[in-house]
């Protein structure tokens, strides 16, 4: 698959994610209307509006939200290391032929980085102070190339909407469950009597309970697949896979969690901000619950590209 097909695939996937998201909210709204048996489909309309507005807001303002939630600041070019990072990003923007993304720094000692935005024209890359301190120029270049590839492949758009989806679903399903368990039915004789309705309600209840978990698993699954790809196309930009490999090793050695980045945006980062707890484990369960493939595997794949293994 070349990068145009990648980008097209990601655009499609983004559409599917938004579609599923809106359908899910419609289902929740329908369930409420069914349960409470009000005359007009109030909840359905409200749910539709909510999902529409939050997709729209996430698409246009989600990147700013994520950046401000990590307290990302603009770079200070008097600092040599920050100047160097800006240079490295500009070099990668030349190598990829894409517009220059905005650059931010996060005051956190743990090395990590992420890219966000809706398309290459509206994109940002943020790094932690720890990454700039620990990595040399060549390794920083590898990281910048990795993030640039996420931007080029439209991974950032997909990831951004996934972040919105995971966040809103967690919020709404929490609220739905609480109002179900503590709320009272207004109307018991209406439509809620047939067995078909009961089955639908049961399925609906299960969906509401499982949705936060499933949406998180989906975000993790999508993110895991994209990391290998960004590693590979990043190496294509720098023509130096070992720079990124050694950067990943250094990031892996720093086991401290990245405190400024919360779980909701974990799938955006170059390495799991939780620290190395799951990153080192392999196997089915660890794979399922990790936002990133094990760093060891990524490093090996990069080393193979450079023919050292």
């Amino acid at each position: 698959m070349n990068i145009y097909e990648q980008a097209a695939g990601n655009r499609r996937a983004t559409g599917v994610v938004v579609g599923v998201f809106i359908l899910f909210f419609l289902a929740i709204g329908l369930g409420f209307d069914l349960y409470y048996g009000a005359g007009a489909p109030v909840f359905t309309i409200a749910a539709f509006l909510f999902s529409g507005v939050s997709s729209y807001a996430g698409f246009y303002y989600g990147d700013k939200l994520i950046l401000s939630s990590t307290r990302a600041k603009e770079l200070d070019f008097n600092d040599l290391k920050q100047r160097q990072w800006q240079n490295v990003v500009e070099e990668m923007s030349i190598a990829s032929g894409l517009p220059l993304p905005k650059t931010y720094i996060i005051d956190d000692p743990d090395p990590n980085a992420f890219a966000t935005g809706r398309d290459p024209q509206h994109s940002s890359i943020a790094v932690t102070r720890g990454l700039l301190d620990k990595l040399n120029r060549e390794e920083l270049q590898g990281v910048a190339a990795h993030e640039m590839s996420h931007i080029r492949n439209f991974d950032i758009r997909l990831m951004l909407l996934l972040a919105v989806l995971v966040g809103s679903i967690a919020l709404i399903s929490d609220w739905a469950r609480r109002s179900l368990f503590y709320g009272r039915r207004r109307d018991s004789r209406g439509s809620g009597s047939g067995p078909a309705v009961l089955i639908i309600l049961a399925i609906w209840l299960i969906a509401v309970i499982l949705a936060p978990l499933l949406s998180q698993l989906l975000a993790m699954f999508v993110s895991r697949k994209r990391e290998y790809l960004a590693d590979a196309s990043g190496a294509e930009l720098t023509r130096n896979p070992l720079g990124l490999a050694s950067a990943l090793e250094k990031i892996n050695e720093a086991v401290e969690p990245t405190r400024s980045i919360n779980q909701g945006s974990a799938h955006l980062c170059i390495a799991d901000p939780k620290g190395s707890a799951l990153g080192a484990k392999e196997g089915m369960a660890a794979d399922l619950f990790a936002t990133h493939p094990p760093i060891k595997k990524r490093v090996e794949a990069l080393q193979q590209m450079a023919y050292v293994k």
Partner: peptide, 23 residues
């Protein structure tokens, strides 16, 4: 510090020349 900064700018420029030729 000034030399270090200039050196960084020149290294970056050399890279930019290389990457623009690559592109």
């Amino acid at each position: 510090e000034n030399v270090a900064k200039l050196q960084e700018e020149l290294i970056s420029t050399e890279n930019r020349i290389g990457f623009s030729r690559q592109f």
